[in-house]
Amino acid sequence: MKKVYVNEKVCMGCRLCEVYCLLKHAQTKDLVKAYKKESPRALSRIRVDESGIVSLSVRCEHCAEAPCVRACLTGALSRDPVTGLVTVDEEQCIGCGTCALVCPLGVPKLDKAQKKMVKCDFCQDEEIPVCVANCPNEALVYMEEKPDNNRVVNYVNTN
């Protein structure tokens, strides 16, 4: 499956991926309205982590052996065997937050108003996810999964 990869050598921590992810999940298409008018404000499915000089954009990895799917109390989370996408069935989600506890990246977010968890779906209705499309430094790449790719990011010296 196609996944979003982060080139941490050029991720500069501007957090525009967070901004555009939020917009994508807002009712409106207008950034100013999404932030200032919509209440409650939509949630970004992305988090930018920073440590020292390294910064990187973190989102759901859609793991093959997804711990969140295993841990989900109600079976709301499932991994599509064909597309490999881990999705949440909002009808069944009770917003207990167990998924967030077991996720090694801590990416599931809780929509407190709806009492549901929200997560990245790689923008299924877009050609490429909006975070990738709007990354100003091309640090995010949407490409076919490479089996040899180490998905746990190397925290080594970037240069």
């Binding site: 080139n7 050029v10 991720c11 000089i53 430094n137 091309e138 640090a139 970037t158």
Partner: peptide
């Protein structure tokens, strides 16, 4: 703009691909 610097936080702003 990450050009005239050796600060590794800033040099990342130039992606050699771009």
């Amino acid at each position: 703009w990450g050009i005239c610097t050796t600060d590794l936080r800033l040099t990342k702003r130039i992606n050699p691909e771009i």
